[in-house]
Amino acid sequence: MSNPIYGTNSIPNYNKERTDNSTTTLIVSAGITDKISVSTFIPYRYILNEKVLFRGQYHNQYEGGLYSRESYGIGDIIVQMNYQFDLFNGRFPILVGSGLKLANGKINSKDIYDERINDNLQVGSGSIDPIFSIYTNEPFGSFMVSSGLFTRISARENIYGYKYGNELHGLANVDFIGSDYFFGGIQLYYLLSSRDTYEYGKIARDRGGESIFISAKLGIKLTDDFDLELIMQNPIHQNLNESQLTSSNSIQIGTLYRFTL
């Protein structure tokens, strides 16, 4: 992320700040019955933030210059149980999920001066939060139409007094599934988040807002059980609180391996 936005407008990145955010997620999903399944998301995150400080902006580096912060490790694990409702005579099955985002991710990464870096740059959030999701899909000939909502409600502040804002994720997909060798599609992704707060409820600047992204997806079926996919995501609308770093595009690479126990 290196493109700052103020509200809906691009603004100069005068600190030349850039954040590289890499996440590798292992998703394990298992069906317990025909209607009940359990999913676990285990992310490994690497976050690198770099900027050029002005004189006096950081007391440990008074004259300014390049300042880097990084954190890495296993992020907060999500454990979720899903139940499938058949409300429309077998069409549009609705998968309702509920679970917890654990607080296992590290929140005490430090910079080279041995000072703890910002909460937003830590791999974990430091709080156990409930999550809810709802998802449905339906094939139409060679296409699969799907949509879903996912929310994370911040239950409490972490040990340092920082509390993340609530997040609502919505997505709608249209995928081509008519080939034995490849698949692809487009996705509309909506993200709404509220501000974070510091200890005693002090409102955080530069957090929260509304974004809409569009993604193009292309995948290859390497074997019957193994898929490889590439997703290119671009923002089409962003209205953010105060100034925030955004990314003009992002790339996701995913693999899916299906196995039966």
Partner: peptide, 12 residues
């Protein structure tokens, strides 16, 4: 639940 995502307060 939409009210959970609205920022009703501004920073100081």
């Amino acid at each position: 639940s939409c009210s959970l995502y609205e920022d009703t307060e501004q920073p100081d």
